[in-house]
Design a protein around this nucleic acid. Structure first.
Lengths: 126, 126
DNA sequence: ATATTAATTAGCCATTTGGCTAATCATGAA
DNA sequence: TTCATGATTAGCCAAATGGCTAATTAATAT
């Protein structure tokens, strides 16, 4: 049950649940895009993402300088959980806002994103 | 999504997940029985139980001096979550142990249980 | 009425968590 | 090779969490 507990802990934080929620809609997102819509420092987003990967909730792949994250669809036992979360969070104001913000972010290539580190945690203009 | 987050937080602690796990098997348990199998102080069990009730995961009813807790089956949207948890935790060593301990505890009437407060957090002989 | 007792609440403490900045690692560009 | 840059790690701090004991509340039993 420790494995299950790890999964639950990985999604029972506000920002991590927000990450999961948008990945239920967008197949794959770059760390910099996630950093951007969460409006937290890059290091903070990175740590949340690591926790989710370690728990087996997310998978990632590196492509050049960027790391892309997606739900772990290989672990089929997670599917019912994802489905449940989806039903619960879709159309909530938080997730609606996040998806809207992401729309704008996705219009900008990653090269122009991720200025948070240099900007001291504040969001880049998109 | 805050409601969903509250539910997730309510079950993403080891002891609270243990409580949920045994309530998937035993329809209803008294606070003193839960205190007993968790082997924590009564106050600690009580606080965990309150959190789960507040999040809507558990319901309780008072009967005399005892308070009985059970899963909230009224909220039908929780059913898939309970089902998922059940599949994940059943037959894990932790839950198996807990259920075994509960078997013995259930043989003892509540009157003879719950000596933890007086015993300084240590378990009564059953 | 008084004592007993299950449960809860209050108050304390140690640990964990989540945020930040700064430093480091790793990859592509000049 | 050297520089720029996205991601991660390290180190720090404030807030939240989970444990305990002691005090309080609510109900039964004497």
């Amino acid at each position: 049950m420790d494995k299950t507990l790890a999964v639950l802990k990985a999604i029972s934080d506000k920002n991590r649940l927000r990450i999961l929620s948008v990945l239920l809609v967008h197949e794959e997102l770059c760390a910099c895009q996630i950093t951007e819509f969460l409006k937290v420092a890059g290091a903070t987003a990175s740590r949340h993402l690591s926790q989710m990967v370690n728990a087996g909730v997310l998978e990632n792949r590196k492509q050049g300088r960027w790391v892309y994250f997606r739900l772990n669809r290989d672990e089929s036992s997670l599917a019912p959980l994802f489905k449940w979360i989806n039903r619960k969070v879709e159309n909530t104001t938080q997730v609606t806002q996040d998806l809207k913000a992401l729309e704008k972010i996705l219009c900008v290539p990653c090269e122009n994103l991720s200025r948070k580190q240099r900007n001291g945690g504040h969001c880049a203009k998109v």
